[in-house]
């Protein structure tokens, strides 16, 4: 088992004349929390969408766990062990929190139509396992008491947690979080930090897009910075923070004598 979990090779994506990603390469190691930052419109979410199969890259590709990732359909990425959350939360609003997580188990379970119609012993056992695992995950992310509520009725922070629980239900090896702290207050962000750290300790590699610099710098082992669809820097947080190009990307050009 190699140390590298995901390798992006020269990933490019254009939308008409807009180059959203230009030859982005990066490597994510097993068990690390890897941050992807950059100003708005830098291509972070586009990169996520390419990785998880929502977009097909125009050039380049991914190697996941030593095998090329055929990222032409999102469900294939999920089967391979890549789970994600969305920047603008996408839950199943009319299903309960528990059911949302149970849907996440879909890809790791196998009951078919016949099993469901005949309600065989195997189906019943599997269904009980799905439910138990979903309950465990709700407890794990800290919203076990909301299990029976419709997803749409949860608070914003709880919806974010539920989305993470649903992603974890697919048994990912790489968990991609798209701005999980967006719209959270300080206390919620602090709790989220603990949650992400815990997920990593359970052996799941985390890829994190985030604007909250305190969270990113405190949590990530390594970072890549995107600007105008290109990777301008990839290193540990302490180095990235001092990188001249990164500071320019965020603050504009810095005068020589500053």
């Amino acid at each position: 088992m190699s140390e590298v979990l995901l390798e992006a090779r020269e990933v490019s994506k254009r939308f008409g004349g807009v180059k959203a990603l230009t030859g982005v390469s990066l490597t994510i190691r097993r068990g690390e929390i890897y941050g992807l930052i950059g100003p708005n419109g830098a291509g972070k979410t586009t990169f996520f969408n390419c990785l998880t199969g929502l977009y097909v890259p125009d050039g380049g590709g991914f190697v996941f766990d030593g095998q090329p990732l055929q990222a032409d359909a999102p469900q294939k990425a999920a089967v391979r062990g890549i789970a994600r959350t969305f920047q603008n939360i996408r839950l199943f609003p009319e299903m309960t929190a528990l059911e949302n997580v149970m849907v996440g188990r879909h890809v790791r379970t196998c009951a078919g139509v016949l099993g469901a119609m005949l309600r065989t012993r195997a189906t019943q056992l599997e269904e009980a396992r799905i439910r138990r695992r979903a309950e465990e995950l709700l407890y794990y992310v800290g919203i076990a008491d909301r299990a029976g509520d419709l997803a749409r009725n949860l608070s914003y922070g709880d919806q974010r947690r539920l989305e993470i629980a649903r992603a974890l239900a697919t048994e990912p090896r790489l968990l991609c979080l798209d701005e999980p702290a967006a719209g959270m207050n300080g206390a919620e962000t602090e709790a989220l930090k603990g949650l992400i750290d815990g997920i990593r300790q359970d052996g799941i590699t985390v890829l994190l897009i985030e604007h909250d610099m305190k969270l990113v710098m405190g949590l990530c082992d390594r970072l890549a910075v995107l600007d105008y669809g290109q990777k301008i820097c990839e290193d540990v947080p302490a180095v990235v923070q001092k990188d001249k190009r990164v500071i320019e990307a965020y603050l504009g050009e810095v005068p020589e004598d500053a």
Binding site: G53, F86, P93, M95, M102
Partner: peptide
């Protein structure tokens, strides 16, 4: 499991694919 998958597709197809 099948019925839940159907409902998931009905409510948010992209999210359903993503899981």
């Amino acid at each position: 499991r099948i019925g839940r998958a159907w409902q998931a597709i009905r409510e948010d197809e992209i999210a359903a694919k993503a899981v």
